[in-house]
Amino acid sequence: MSKAVRTAADEIWKNRVEKINVELFTLTYGSVVSQLCRDLNNNYCEVNKQLEIMGENIGVRLIEDFLARTGAGRCNSFKETGEIISKVGFKIFLNIVPQVTNWTDNGKQFSLVFDENPLAEFVELPDDGKAVKELWYSNVLCGVLKGALQMVQLDVDVSFVSDVLRGHDQTEIKLRLIRYLKDEIPAGED
């Protein structure tokens, strides 16, 4: 299944996605984060929250774009969801494929490990001693995932575990399935 999914995603990326230079995206996101830090007086916990809210607002609209573009049907398991998120979702929106790892035995939690992150190119956190302990620079991603998954009836807790910007070895996001939301409607199927 894995290879077929990857090939399908590559095909969508190549032929059905209008592309643009990543630099404007990276710089715009940087401008937003640094403005947020100024607006919120470097209260990084608040900045994290605001980034997550922005991400959720994006996520609930992004999922529609995703379903329309891929014609994806309902996933049969949370494991399948994980594969689709990393190989298709991230591929067609950010042209990266994070690794899916650290599945718990009950299949309700996994991690995405990123070896590249277009949001954080050439970013170095402020040297105030606080940012490197409190700011999750790419926290918008957690919001996007949470918001998008909510629209397909999955209540998932999404949060950063580690970030190379903070000096950690890798950038890792943890996704934990809390529950399936009621009134399950098949998503994206005719």
């Binding site: 710089l27 996101y29 940087g30 640094s34 050439f122 970013v123 170095e124 402020p126 040297d127």
Partner: peptide, 13 residues
Amino acid sequence: LNPFYSVNDPIKS
């Protein structure tokens, strides 16, 4: 290119 660095900031790295 660092979003936290503005023109004319001193470089302390």
